[in-house]
Nucleic acid binder design. Structure first.
Ligand code: FES
Ligand code: FES
Lengths: 142, 142
DNA sequence: AATTTCTGATACTAATTTAGTATCAGTTAA
DNA sequence: TTAACTGATACTAAATTAGTATCAGAAATT
């Protein structure tokens, strides 16, 4: 049971990398090389991040992308939602014969509670936090 | 982002149905009809549940399956693990260039915390609990 | 004994999703 | 005017998930 798919994974990595460079525009090519993410795949991911306002871009030579917000304001939960949608169970587990009615189903509520917890946790993990943690680890390593 | 796949979903439904019948053996055919789960698919799922000791079976005419444990002792977490494996992120998010070393990575720990939380929650939801909730809802409906 | 109703084991196909590729048009800087 | 870039979008390949099929053997029924 994999929580993050490749798009989310690559997106987070790209965002971290961008967050660590405060200077100017970074081309998709450069990012792709640095993070060893397939170029065309990364392009599509970046375009999606741009559409969702996490990243901004500049066209033409010397152009590229950069974060559109402070790293501390970009939550991993947002990224997950962009590429994988909201967390949900499969279909209603007790449809047909067993399931009474969705609206006031106790089970469903219980499970949505878990969903909320997970989302809340992932909302607290921001790109900024990840960068800080990363730097801390690197410092420790010497 | 779907949490449960069809196997887990069907498995849980089958377990609930079995848990609600305390009498004798239920054939895969009967279960399949009752829950509208594709017969062959359900067979495979039941076999897996049997291998994992959640269900026991009796061969031959008049045979079938039944729960091997009290419904209250079967956690949804177990079922998830059987059919979808342990909850995990994709690969290490910061391998190669960014990731220093897995062993003492702060981020990884944080994320494993979430994983544990989810598992813990799903461990508390047992088939027995689901049956109780279901019955409560049905009673309310009148 | 023969037949029917069941599970055990396992191989297979189809559908869907995820991952990755390719292409062309347009923009900016040099 | 050319090279280095993004925007948009269509496409293919690989992997996973969902579902099907088959055959052997066990117990109850006749
Ligand atoms: S599972 Fe369907 S409403 Fe509860
Ligand atoms: S993400 Fe790789 S060890 Fe932290």
């Amino acid at each position: 049971m994999k929580v993050l798919n490749k798009e989310t994974d690559y997106a987070v990595r790209a965002l971290i990398s961008l967050g660590m460079k405060s200077d100017g525009w970074v081309s998709a090519k450069a990012l792709s090389d640095e993070q060893t993410i397939p170029y065309q795949f990364l392009r599509r991911i970046l375009q999606e991040l741009i559409r969702n306002g996490l990243v901004e871009s500049k066209e033409g030579a010397g152009g590229g992308v950069r974060l559109a917000k402070e790293p501390g304001l970009i939550a991993v939960a947002e990224v997950i939602e962009i590429f994988q949608g909201k967390v949900q169970l499969s279909e209603c587990m007790f449809r047909k014969q067993l399931c009474s009615n969705r609206a006031n189903c106790v089970l469903r509520h219980e499970i949505m509670r878990i969903e909320k917890m997970v989302n809340q946790e992932f909302s607290q993990i921001t790109i900024g936090k990840l960068i800080d943690d990363l730097k801390a680890v690197e410092a420790m390593k010497g």
